[in-house]
Amino acid sequence: MSFIGNFFAGVDVGSLASKSVILKDGDIFATGLLKSGVNSVESGLSALNLALDAAGLKKEDLTYIVGTGYGRVSAPYANKAVTEITCHAKGANYLHPTVRTIIDMGGQDCKAIRIDEDGAVVDFAMNDKCAAGTGRFLEVMAEVFKVKLEDLGDIALSATDTVPMSSTCTVFAESETISLVARGEKPENILNGIHHSIANRIAGLFSRVGIASDVFFSGGVAKNTGMKSAIEQALKVTIVRPEIDPQLVGALGAAVIARSFAKKEGLWA
């Protein structure tokens, strides 16, 4: 079976999940998403193969591949590597050209990105090297409360109160949470406090780069409704949600950049 069109792929290997997006000319054609393994090359390839299978394509059908995420440094299947910061900017711009600010919360870091009308990064800031304010932090909290990660946000939104959380260090927050549970605080109220604590920390990132509408939320944590609400309150903004899985935005941006590189290198007219 042969296809008419040009195909470009973006592969985003993150610390917790690996994602891929295939563009057919300018449109999203197929996607792939799975948990990252220990081997980032295999994780990236598996995510790419998922999307290829969904599209009914072979790797040879792809005109250009861009790798991103922390696994971009070991992505032999990719023609080029680009940072996830640039990719999230391009991905957000592709989906919503009016976006000027991006909050990207992934497995191991959190980014505040400012972009222009072309989707080019004009400034950015990232969290410190600890896990506070990341997907991993929320995973630990889900384990503490023995609930599913995807339910955390809804549980937080059902709170009747906000229990202040003084620590956003993952290790200290875990022990503080256990103390709060022992004190008789309701889990939903503690989780609400945790979400607001992270949101306030993220607001600190924006003190460095500023904020302008529209504001876009990407990364795996963007699926968390409680986090979206807490960030909207902390930043006093309304967040634009992507139509696609927000975890795929980086891979989408990588695919958009792959198309651009292909054009520049004369592989696509």
Binding site: T86, D118, A120, V256, S260, K263
Partner: peptide, 14 residues
């Protein structure tokens, strides 16, 4: 570095 170069290069591509 990408951000700096994009001012000169990548912005023209997309």
């Amino acid at each position: 570095i990408e951000m700096i170069k994009s001012k000169k290069e990548i912005a023209e591509l997309v």
